[in-house]
Write a protein that binds this DNA or RNA. Structure first.
Lengths: 121, 121
DNA sequence: CAAAACCATGGAGTTAAGTCAATGGTTTTG
DNA sequence: CAAAACCATTGACTTAACTCCATGGTTTTG
């Protein structure tokens, strides 16, 4: 599909999609028409974009995401301890989840307080 | 306590602490000595900083945090629907937690794949 | 077929959350 | 008491992740 459709279906702007592609997070190939230089994005780019959104929500930077992706396909890299890298991210994200849940609790408590009518003395 | 101690005990840089104070996230008062203009931070600033860290981990911006804090103490604001605001943040954070956990799973799967020796054909 | 809608590229601009450096004053310490 | 360590203030700088703009070409549509 072309970038406009991808943008509409993913909810991300064209600029963001181009930015992601420049960073290497998604890929496209030249379209069928020889008259233009429009790019074509495969259907499953949408799934990848969802995964990227998950990773971002988990606090990963794009740079880390790229490292992570490279781990997924090339498990035979000499000069890089993939397991250690992954374990570090796992610890980070687990901590973030714990903190987020703590914060979620305080949000819920705050809402309760707000919803409770003030006590008459 | 003075800023140096707060920095050491919180793990945040002085600059970050001053930045937070300028934003209104933490407060200090003038110290006892009349000879200088050193500021004094109450003991429970450390707790507040932990809560701030939780909120940041949950993806809240400092601007939102300030709004949230204002909700906690002033529940009688006319021109602002605090409950709606809180509910929106709750939804946001809950979604982020869900995404983070999904991502955490894929990290763990990736690590498993990496740890598993390649199959002999 | 012309206007509207779409596409690519390049580069500048924006925002949030810090971080750094310079200056000058104050305390602590060996 | 002098050097080292600490403090405040100001303003410039950095980084990540977009976002906007200008230009110029291509498709779609009424």
């Amino acid at each position: 599909m072309r970038i406009g459709e991808l943008s509409k279906r993913s909810g991300l702007s064209r600029d963001t999609l181009r930015f992601y592609e420049k960073q290497g997070l998604i890929q496209s190939h030249a379209g069928a028409a020889a008259t233009n230089n429009y790019r074509d994005y495969p259907e499953d780019t949408l799934i990848q974009l969802e995964q990227i959104a998950d990773a971002q929500a988990a606090g990963m930077s794009i740079a880390d995401l790229i490292l992570f992706l490279s781990q997924l396909e090339a498990a035979d890299c000499e000069d890089f301890d993939g397991e250690a890298f992954l374990q570090a991210r796992i610890d980070e994200v687990a901590d973030r989840v714990k903190r987020s849940e703590r914060f979620l609790d305080s949000l819920r408590r705050a809402k309760l307080v707000l919803a409770t009518p003030p006590t008459e003395p």
